[in-house]
């Protein structure tokens, strides 16, 4: 069943897009990641022009994150205050990121920087998470209670001034690292064209020691705004948001997100972290493969804009 996309200017299969959206939405609800780092490569693989894939991916991420966040609000596993502070930092970061994005694109090296960032970040984040979560799972099976929150354990982050209380996360911490994490993630998110959930989730878990179940809801909440901001910026500056494409992905995505949230809540924190780590590592390996293995076609063509 084909449908013609008005902005991408090509004909695509409806069923394929619904399935793609569904699969990514499922993972999104389960792990609290927006799924932008999965949907964008999938769309590019399906021959959608990269600029449209990035912008439309952001649009679809809003829907599945919103849908997932609603489920977390009902469960009380969404920290609005923490999400709000992260967002404030995030907006500053992504504004800088959008400027850098435009600069790199002019130089023709955008693909390289994005790939390198993906490989380095996903590889590091995935690797660290996997090691930690496997250890936690071992401890849990050895009869000990596995938790990241050990009383009396404080790192340097907890000694910074300007402390603020985040009740839902059972957290009393300085706003400086929270704003900083928000800004760095906002920057990376807009350069890489993603919501940044896959960096946000581990950062909140490991740096701020927020409980895993609250992290997912809060991350989703934050992603809604980052993705909305990205969508509007791309739509205004580049006219690369294809609503028909986005809508098809959304329909699949919101359905998937609801099932994903349910599965995610059945799993224990360390199992969830291990699975997310594996997913993140798989994407990193895939991208590294593209970077280091001789491509089947060393040439690529692109329309020359502004000429």
């Amino acid at each position: 069943m084909g449908i013609y996309l008005p902005i991408a200017e090509m004909s695509v299969n409806v069923i394929v897009l619904l399935a793609m959206g569904g699969a990514v939405g499922f993972l999104s609800g389960m792990f609290g990641v927006g799924g932008g780092f999965l949907i964008t490569p999938l769309l590019i693989f399906y021959n959608i022009p990269p600029a449209i894939a990035v912008a439309t991916g952001a649009n679809q991420v809003i829907a599945s994150s919103f849908s997932g966040a609603l489920a977390h609000i009902k469960r009380g596993t969404l920290d609005f205050k923490l999400g709000g502070v992260l967002l404030a930092g995030g907006i500053v970061g992504s504004s800088i990121g959008i400027y850098v994005f435009a600069l790199l694109r002019r130089l023709g090296q955008l693909d390289l920087i994005i790939s390198l960032l993906y490989v380095a970040l996903l590889g590091a984040v995935g690797g660290l998470m996997l090691v930690e979560s496997v250890r936690a799972i071992r401890r849990a099976s050895g009869g000990q209670t596995a938790t990241l929150r050990r009383p009396g354990q404080h790192n340097w982050i907890h000694r910074l001034p300007l402390k603020m209380r985040f009740r839902a996360s059972k957290l009393f911490v300085s706003v400086i690292p929270v704003l900083g994490i928000g800004a760095i993630i906002g920057f990376l998110a807009s350069v890489m064209g993603v919501g940044g959930g896959f960096i946000m989730v581990p950062a909140l878990i490991y740096l701020l020691k927020v409980p895993t179940n609250v992290v997912i809801g809060t991350s989703l909440f934050q992603i809604i705004f980052v993705a909305a901001y990205t969508t509007i910026v791309h739509a205004t500056a580049n006219q690369t948001v294809d609503v028909v494409l986005a809508f098809l992905l959304m329909v699949g995505g919101v359905a998937g997100a609801q099932y994903g949230t349910r599965v995610g809540q059945k799993l224990r924190g360390e199992q969830l972290r291990a699975l997310l780590a594996l997913l993140v590592l798989a994407v990193a390996l895939r991208l590294a493969f593209d970077l280091f293995v001789r491509p089947s076609d060393i040439y690529s063509i692109a329309p020359l804009s502004g000429a």
């Binding site: 649009n59 829907a63 599945s64 609503v243 809508f247």
Partner: peptide, 14 residues
């Protein structure tokens, strides 16, 4: 409008 559409779709999906 694209953002609004996404929010509505997310809500209805829920």
């Amino acid at each position: 409008a694209a953002v609004f559409l996404a929010i509505i779709t997310g809500w209805i999906g829920r």
